Amino acid sequence: MLVDAHAHLLPHDYPDDAPDCFPRMEPVDGTDARLLVFGALRFTAKAAFFDAEKRIEAQDASGVDAEVITPMPPLLRYDLPVADGLSLARHVNEFTTTLCAAAPGRLYGFGIVPLQDPDTATAELKQIRDAGLHGVEIASGVLGRPIGDERFRPFFAEAERLGLPVFVHAMPAPTDQLPASAMGTHVVGLQGATAAASMITGGTAAECPDLRLSFSHAAGGFPLVLPRAQYFWSGTWNEEPAVPERAFAHDDGPSPLDYARHFFYDTMVFDHRALRYLVDLLGHDRLLAGSDFPAMPREEPCGRTLRSLDLSPAELDDILWHNTFRWLGVDPPP
């Protein structure tokens, strides 16, 4: 069995009377694709983004049994006025609910919220749960603030209370340190790392110990800097017992690695050596198979590199499907 825990959707269209700040989905002549027009963004979306039958055909062709589907990250527009952001989120969430209802057991949908207003976003979580959606997707930062900022703590506490898992998708952010061509690669890796680190350093991981949180693309560079954070906490290499008098920041609570091993991470890292490192450092029980489909083509067959790692059958099953259902908090199908 294989469950793709990182896959995306786009609504087929938007209301005719939608605010001007909403996206548009325009027909593409001669195809069943749609053109997403959102400000300066132009993106051609194949039918698998919005057609349940096409999604299931694609799953079957790639050896995928189910998907966790989240809206494409450009829809996480935290720069919109709050009322417009809430209206957009509700339209997208309604479409997601309808799409998943067409293929129960094969599609597990997540909603979105206007996190630019934490109070509104927090209040919307119950509606997401009551609609039958399985979790909520957020971006790695909100208008220049990392998600570990204290102002978002009530949002995560409510997600924890409701038992809703959270998917953190790394998003490009403006920077003068790298060229624009690096937005989808290096900058995304930096944003993912900042988001995960902020959840630990900002105190949310400690305050919300039962929150089920997953990071896209293994939280970018976060796993590689974790041993350094561990050293500053413990004063030792290789996760050896802490020596407080040699540490820079030791306390009696969980270590950075302890907190990091409470998160989940998808496996979209493109290299067997990177996957091996994630297994060795974070544990096979923390990883979720993911593909970014249909925004990116799946590895064929899906999970091929994971299966090349010489993992035990139990470890491989954990990554390919079991961990995803643990993250979702639902029983796997028979």
Rank of each mutant, 00 (worst) to 15 (best):
T204L: 02
P256M: 11
D258E: 14
A219Y: 02
I200C: 03
V168L: 08
E239N: 13
P172R: 12
V188M: 10
V187W: 04
D271I: 14
D271W: 00
S181Y: 04
R273F: 12
R261K: 14
V188D: 06
A247N: 00
G220L: 05
G192N: 01
F215M: 12
L211A: 13
Y265I: 08
H217P: 05
A242F: 04
D266Q: 05
V243E: 07
P223N: 06
F222Q: 11
V243R: 02
T267Q: 00
T267M: 05
D251A: 10
L278I: 07
L190K: 00
E207T: 13
A180C: 15
G253T: 06
H169Q: 11
D176I: 12
V187M: 08
V269S: 02
V243L: 09
Q177G: 13
F167Q: 11
F248S: 13
S198N: 03
A249F: 14
A242I: 05
L278D: 03
A197H: 09
G253M: 03
G253R: 01
Q177I: 10
D210P: 07
A219G: 10
Y265G: 09
F263I: 04
E207G: 15
L257F: 02
Y231F: 15
Y265A: 09
A242Q: 02
A195H: 00
A274Y: 09
R276N: 10
V243A: 12
H262A: 14
L226H: 04
R273C: 12
V187Q: 10
E245N: 05
D280H: 01
F270Y: 10
P227S: 01
D252F: 07
P256R: 02
Q230G: 08
D251R: 04
A180K: 15
C208W: 01
G192E: 03
E245K: 11
R273M: 10
V225Y: 10
D251Y: 04
P179K: 12
P172D: 14
A196I: 01
S181T: 14
V243S: 06
S214M: 07
A219Q: 03
P174I: 12
M183T: 13
D280C: 05
A249I: 04
F270T: 11
R212D: 01
S181V: 14
A197N: 04
F270G: 11
Y259H: 15
L213D: 04
S198W: 03
Y265F: 13
D176K: 11
H262I: 11
V279Q: 07
P165F: 08
L275V: 06
F264W: 10
A229L: 14
A218I: 06
E240Q: 11
G253N: 01
H250F: 15
A249R: 07
I200K: 06
W237Y: 11
H250G: 03
E207A: 15
A182Q: 15
F248Y: 15
T175I: 15
P227D: 02
G202Y: 00
E239K: 06
A170H: 09
T185R: 00
S216Q: 07
H250E: 02
T194H: 09
P174V: 13
